[in-house]
């Protein structure tokens, strides 16, 4: 007999699991991506490839790069998670 408070309900809902997993894993991968990317490229050198007066410092460059990677990874993770979760079950054809 396990006390009632522990029975069953200690899990997150599937949606919550999916959202937090997507956000967290994309955060970790974005952190690695940012590290590798900015070890190879200096944000100050990169601003030259944009037209106009995009004159941002390194700090802002790093931040922009990190959030770019994060959003990109989150998008990729989210679509993957969605497709995996909504895929037709393998036994679907036997149903009717």
């Amino acid at each position: 007999m396990i006390s009632e408070e522990y029975r069953g309900a200690k899990q997150w809902s599937r949606d919550k699991q999916a959202v937090f997993t997507v956000v967290w894993i994309s955060f970790l991968v974005a952190a690695i991506g940012t590290m590798v990317f900015f070890a190879l490229f200096d944000p100050v050198d990169l601003t030259g490839i944009f037209d106009g007066d995009l004159d941002i410092g390194r700090d802002a460059g790093y931040a922009a790069g990190f959030f770019f990677f994060w959003v990109l990874c989150a998008l990729c993770s989210a679509v993957t998670a969605y497709l995996v979760r909504t895929a037709p079950k393998r036994d679907a054809k036997h149903r009717d």
Partner: peptide
């Protein structure tokens, strides 16, 4: 996994 997966998380003390 059971139906309880869909319940919201209870706080663990």
């Amino acid at each position: 996994a059971s139906a309880s997966m869909y319940e919201s998380a209870k706080k663990i003390y």
